[in-house]
Deep mutational scan, measured.
Amino acid sequence: SSGGSSILDRAVIEHNLLSASKLYNNITFEELGALLEIPAAKAEKIASQMITEGRMNGFIDQIDGIVHFETR
């Protein structure tokens, strides 16, 4: 797709992000992006959206560029 990722790509990214949230206590956007094979800024945006929508527990430290995952 030309304008970003398809629905399937997005679903795969979100699935992998949720998997990462179970493996890590926290991770930088750079590391997360590398893990998900997407730019760091996109990793931040998707993580932020999932947390806001209540689909993933955690919070974002924008100063240090880190996602902190919280286990249920």
Rank of each mutant, 00 (worst) to 15 (best):
V67C: 03
E14M: 07
M50T: 01
E70G: 14
F59Q: 06
K42L: 15
A40F: 05
L35I: 09
S1Y: 03
E44I: 15
G58S: 02
I27M: 13
I38K: 00
F69G: 02
I7P: 11
K45F: 13
Q49S: 08
A34R: 14
F29A: 02
I51A: 02
I60A: 02
I27P: 01
L36A: 02
N57G: 10
V12W: 14
F69T: 02
S48M: 12
K45I: 12
A11M: 11
L8G: 10
I38S: 00
S6E: 14
I27W: 05
E14S: 03
S5F: 05
E31L: 11
E37V: 07
F69H: 01
G4M: 08
I51Q: 03
E31K: 09
S48L: 12
I66R: 15
G3S: 12
A34V: 11
M56Q: 01
Q49G: 05
I27L: 14
I38V: 07
S2W: 04
G65K: 10
A34D: 07
N26E: 09
V67Q: 01
T71F: 08
A20R: 03
E70K: 10
G33C: 03
L36M: 04
S48V: 09
S19Y: 10
S19H: 14
I66D: 03
D64N: 15
I51P: 00
I63R: 10
L35M: 07
G4N: 12
F59M: 07
I60D: 00
I66S: 09
D9G: 06
E37K: 15
S21T: 06
M50W: 03
K22T: 07
S19R: 15
I46E: 01
T71K: 13
H68E: 04
S1Q: 11
L18R: 06
G4P: 13
Y24D: 01
E53F: 04
I46N: 00
L8E: 10
A34C: 08
K45H: 11
P39R: 03
R10L: 14
K42R: 14
S6V: 13
I13P: 01
V67W: 02
A47I: 10
H15L: 13
I60K: 00
N26T: 13
N57V: 12
K22Y: 08
E53H: 06
K42Y: 15
L18Q: 05
I27H: 01
Y24A: 03
F69L: 04
R55K: 10
M56G: 01
Y24M: 06
L18E: 04
A20N: 04
G54C: 06
S6C: 13
A41V: 09
T28P: 04
G65E: 06
N25S: 14
E53R: 05
I7A: 14
L18W: 05
K45D: 10
H15E: 13
D64I: 11
I63M: 08
I13L: 11
R10V: 13
K45N: 08
A43H: 00
Q62F: 14
L17C: 03
I51E: 00
G3Q: 12
E30P: 05
G33F: 02
L36Q: 01
G54K: 07
F29K: 02
G65I: 02
V67Y: 02
D64W: 13
A34W: 09
A40T: 07
M56K: 01
R72G: 10
S1R: 09
L35K: 04
H68Q: 05
S48E: 09
E30I: 13
L17I: 14
A40C: 05
A11H: 14
G3R: 08
I46S: 02
I63E: 11
E70V: 12
A40M: 07
F69A: 01
L18P: 00
T71A: 10
I38D: 00
A40E: 04
I38W: 03
A47C: 10
L35R: 04
T28R: 05
S5Y: 03
F69I: 03
S6W: 05
